[in-house]
């Protein structure tokens, strides 16, 4: 399983020289195995996704429909290719279909092209706590704590497991992250994963002023990964106010403060990770 990070910023793209190392594009990650391609979220990083010309199907797995996770959709070239079959999977809402909610963006005045005008073969899937298969992948989706319908994904390939929860606040509550794992949002998705990509937008100090905003501190993300016996953690959804220098300083301090028996790192746009 190959994982390519195309966008690791949270909330809003932050282009500029002071964010060029970690990257300024919002959430998008490509997962591939045996010529099957999954695109996790459609943030602005999606414009950097290129697929081999031989590929005739691609699956986009949206965690939720906040703008930083869909703003790249309109610039995703397979949608404009009549030979492509594009599947979009996203969390069900109690009130509106996935089609209706995506159409609110892909329609004037926000975007000049209507969803129904896209030349590709487009198939939308409303999902909730679901298990489904795409090529060699078995995918489990579960609702997680974040404002509005939001899912995380557990993607099981032939030999390895990727868990992806870029927007998540499992520590929401009076006492923070609970230790009884039955009571932790997203725990089943993450347990024993080979790689977890998880929200780590804030420092612990910043989080105290952002409780309920739907995101995690780096410390909580690491603790969550530890409770779930994750083998490797990538901290993502970087705060747009954290430039490269600040992010590196924060991470350096974090490494001095915490010690866990698994590697953890900050997500870097352009990084590629191979799982066996």
């Amino acid at each position: 399983m190959k994982i390519s990070l195309k966008g690791v910023r949270g909330s809003i793209p932050t282009s500029g020289t002071d964010t060029s190392y970690y990257g300024g594009n919002t959430s998008c990650t490509v997962v591939s195995e045996n010529d099957w391609y999954l695109v996790l979220d459609g943030g602005s990083g999606m414009q950097k996704v290129t697929l081999p010309s031989s590929i005739k199907r691609v699956d986009i797995l949206l965690t939720h429909l906040h703008f930083d996770h869909i703003q790249g959709l309109g610039f995703f070239s397979p949608l404009f290719n009549q030979d492509m079959e594009v599947h979009i999977w996203g969390p069900a809402s109690a009130t509106q279909s996935l089609h209706a909610r995506i159409s609110r963006y892909l329609s004037p005045p926000l975007f000049p092209v209507l969803l129904r005008e896209l030349p590709c073969t487009l198939i939308l899937h409303d999902i909730d706590n679901s298990v489904f298969e795409i090529g060699p992948f078995t995918i489990e989706s579960r609702f997680v704590i974040h404002p509005g319908p939001t899912v995380g994904y557990r993607i099981t390939g032939q030999h390895s497991v990727l868990a992806y929860i870029p927007d998540h606040e499992p520590a929401l509550g009076l006492t923070g992250l609970l230790t009884d794992t039955k009571w932790i949002s997203g725990f089943d998705l993450v347990a024993n994963a080979d790689l977890l990509m998880h929200d780590a937008q804030y420092t612990a100090r910043e989080y105290t002023n952002k409780i309920g905003w739907g995101h995690s501190s780096m410390e909580d993300a690491i603790r969550f990964a530890s409770l779930a016996a994750v083998k490797h953690l990538v901290l993502t959804h970087h705060d747009p106010l954290h430039n490269d220098k600040l992010l590196s300083e924060i991470f350096s301090e974090l490494q001095k403060e915490v010690s866990y028996p698994f590697p953890f790192e900050l997500a870097i746009e352009g990084r590629e990770i191979e799982l066996p």
């Binding site: 706590n129 609702f143 997680v144 704590i145 929401l172 509550g173 009076l174 006492t175 794992t181 039955k182 009571w183 932790i184 949002s185 997203g186 725990f187 089943d188």
Partner: peptide, 16 residues
């Protein structure tokens, strides 16, 4: 298995 988030959020509310 972990509880559904609707249950978890009700507990977190009850805690407060």
């Amino acid at each position: 298995a972990a509880y559904e988030i609707e249950i978890i959020l009700n507990r977190q509310l009850a805690d407060c």
